[in-house]
């Protein structure tokens, strides 16, 4: 009896909190018809915002994949003074409000008052209110995911198989690409997917650093938000549907990855 009450309670909680509201968005987006929803998001402003988000996300994900694996390797394989500080910094974006991240980036990179922004600006590189700022904000907010997924896997597999490969004649590159990387691949894939999801959905940090110029530096979440505040709710819901579909795709990929990863164990 209590078992059923608990189940009902759990199911009810997530249904009312997540299920129904998200369902309502989908229903609202599609109620004028699919063709109409499609028209809403195929405006040039919308397409540009989507393109900008995907493009900046691709770059930020690439950076965080490479550096995330690197940082995880260093943390897992070397004990050094300050390692715990590095770990703390890696985790910081999880607890730091995105708005603070946006402000921090601005303070450092803004061409007018940023610490190195002026220097960069003199060399023709603007970061804040430009594409590089959007990439940086995405990379910053999503920094922890690859490291957090890869680090425990590295610690669990240990170094014996890498040493074994070495004794068989493998150099550092061969060891990394043929032993280490395949061993962490599912953890890494999971981390990359989480990173992607985080960047695509980021709004707070973007709203500080992007500049939000329609057709230029407006990201997709900003586009959705702008539509909503401009009483263009059809556009806002259609945009929300696109973001929702992207997260469903990522969710499917995540569960597939997790299952593959578990099977390998």
């Amino acid at each position: 009896m209590t078992k059923w009450v608990l189940r009902l309670l759990g199911a009810g909680y997530v249904t009312f909190l997540v299920g129904i509201p998200v369902g309502a968005v989908i229903w609202r987006a599609l109620s004028p018809g699919i063709a109409s929803a499609f028209d809403q998001i195929s405006t040039s402003a919308s397409l540009h915002a989507l393109g900008l988000t995907l493009e900046s996300a691709a770059i930020a994900v690439a950076f965080n994949t490479v550096f995330g694996v690197g940082v995880a390797l260093i943390l897992a394989r070397h004990r050094f003074p300050g390692a715990s500080i590095v770990e703390l910094l890696v985790d910081l974006p999880l607890s730091l409000s995105p708005i603070v991240i946006g402000l921090a980036l601005t303070l450092f990179y803004s061409s007018r008052e940023g610490w190195i922004g002026g220097w960069l600006n003199a060399r023709g590189i603007s970061v804040i209110f430009a594409f590089p700022g959007i990439v940086l904000a995405g990379a910053f907010v999503s920094l922890p995911y690859v490291v957090r997924e890869v680090l425990p896997v590295l610690q669990e597999i240990g170094t014996d198989s890498e040493r074994a490969a070495e004794t068989l004649g493998a150099g550092p590159f061969t060891v990394f690409f043929r032993i280490t990387l395949p061993a962490i691949r599912w953890g890494l894939a999971y981390g990359v997917l989480l990173t992607t999801a985080r960047i695509l959905g980021e709004y707070g940090a973007m709203s500080v650093v992007s500049g939000n110029v329609v057709g230029e530096t407006q990201t997709f979440t900003q586009f959705v938000s702008a539509d909503f505040t401009n009483y263009d709710s059809a556009g806002a819901y259609a945009g929300a549907l696109v973001l929702g579909m992207l997260s469903v795709l990522i969710l499917a990929a995540l569960s597939l990855t997790r299952r593959r990863g578990e099977k390998q164990q």
């Binding site: 014996d160 040493r163 074994a164 068989l168 061993a183 691949r185 390998q264």
Partner: peptide
């Protein structure tokens, strides 16, 4: 030019 075997085998699991 050595061959080395570890206590816990160190297999390449993948």
């Amino acid at each position: 030019g050595i061959g080395f075997c570890f206590q816990h085998y160190a297999p390449f699991r993948h």
